[in-house]
Design a binder for these strands. Structure first.
Lengths: 236, 236
DNA sequence: GATTTTACTATCCAAGTGGATATATAAATT
DNA sequence: AATTTATATATCCACTTGGATAGTAAAATC
């Protein structure tokens, strides 16, 4: 269980500290969401089995129905948790205790480090983004478009200010996000081809450096320097 | 049916032109492989249903068993076809009638154009590369490692010759391949977010330009200039 | 033209799926 | 301590899945 989930758990425990049932229900809920994220990201929505998720969470599959209703609703809850954590960690990254409005380089670094820490994010989006579906439309409308909207102006300024090469902004955002995610998302493949563990700190540092070298940006200009609210910026 | 499949079909027809059954069997086989590639790439191995593939191919699911045996064997046949076409089109691209040993820029361009023409390639690999499996090991050993081996020396020379920024070669190859593929692979998502059709020629041209601008390479230095055999080079 | 070969169909099967419901059990309330 | 509430379990259901097999019809062979 990571920092984010522990925080929620602690909050809830404080609120309902007299009610043991609510505590246990919440812990079960978190275990289910955790297992769901793991299965959905590795296998995709259709191939993931509710019974397998339940087994990993230490409950029977009927409990999932009780907590979340349908498999579809479970998926949406899991994706919501995922994006909530994404936005939180991009605004206030674990690796930067005191976080100010990030420079373009810092922002890219945060994004790559997040992708390395949580490869399930890219995986779950990949599985859904390859063919149209209700789930994809919902995820895009609810989370992806807002995230792109937050980061697009900064990228546009960087291109116009010649801090990034001139190119289509759509291509740019797809290149940046896929470059940052790919190595970690495809960890199983990279392990087989190169024998590397993409979760190793050296590998992660190398990849951060590689993406920054490719974009040829350093820790100079700030992203969203003109608006404080853009501190909690995100690409997805 | 694309040029590659028609070619095979024509060859086979010439050989067995007196045997109508062989012709029809081959045509059925091609229709099945075509549908299989489509389903496996969009939905992944587990979620794709043999019956659905059969329906799209205009046969019953028992025919697939007759032609290919198990679902797993069908997948392998489809992937083999995919990589055969990949290697053929990278060595002799449809957009370049007379193909010589490509420059680095030409090679990147070929790769992006191939990815745009056949987004199912990246999709099928993505679905398989997110968690270890027998299928992944087989695909990596049989096709991906050889393809990486063919292109790695050229990339290494480009980095050492300062034609590409200094970085980990593993990161570099993941960045190049994901950058080239992502926009087309995620066409469904891009359509929802930006309303664009990633198959449109303008979009494709823009993306080729974007990847080349990012790598800051032009049509100067050749890839594998010292060895003619590297003409049939590939990234996967 | 009769016989053999073979690509394909119709149908069956066991296993696994998402979902539904009745029951048990433990915690909270009175 | 008895009663109520609610979380989790055991089980059932209709449906789909990959796979298997017996039968059909058309093409090739004689």
């Amino acid at each position: 269980m990571d920092r984010f989930k522990r925080q929620i758990l602690a909050d809830e425990k404080r609120i309902y500290r007299t009610d043991k049932r609510r505590q246990q229900k919440l812990e079960t809920r978190i275990r289910i969401l955790d297992a769901a994220l793991d299965h959905f990201s590795r296998r995709g929505f259709e191939a993931a089995a509710v019974r397998d998720i339940a087994a990993d969470a230490g409950v029977t599959h009927a409990v999932i129905r009780l907590h979340f209703g349908t498999k579809d609703q479970l998926w949406r809850e899991a994706v919501s948790q995922l994006f909530a954590r994404f936005e939180q960690e991009m605004a206030d990254p674990p690796e930067e205790p005191t976080s100010a409005t990030p420079s373009l380089a810092q922002f890219i670094r945060r994004y790559v480090l997040y992708s390395a820490r949580h490869p399930e994010h890219a995986r779950i989006m990949m599985h859904e983004s390859m063919e149209p579906s209700e789930r994809l439309s919902w995820m895009v409308d609810t989370y992806v478009i807002p995230a792109h909207r937050r980061v697009m102006p900064a990228l546009e300024r960087a291109v116009q200010g010649r801090r990034l090469p001139a190119m289509s902004l759509v291509s740019l955002i797809y290149i940046i996000s896929s470059s940052g995610q790919s190595l970690f998302m495809l960890g199983a493949e990279a392990k087989l081809i190169y024998g590397i563990d993409v979760a190793a700190p050296e590998t992660i540092d190398q990849h951060v450096a590689a993406v920054l070298a490719l974009l040829r940006i350093s820790y100079g200009s700030t992203v969203g320097a003109d608006r404080q609210s853009e501190g909690a910026i995100g690409i997805a």
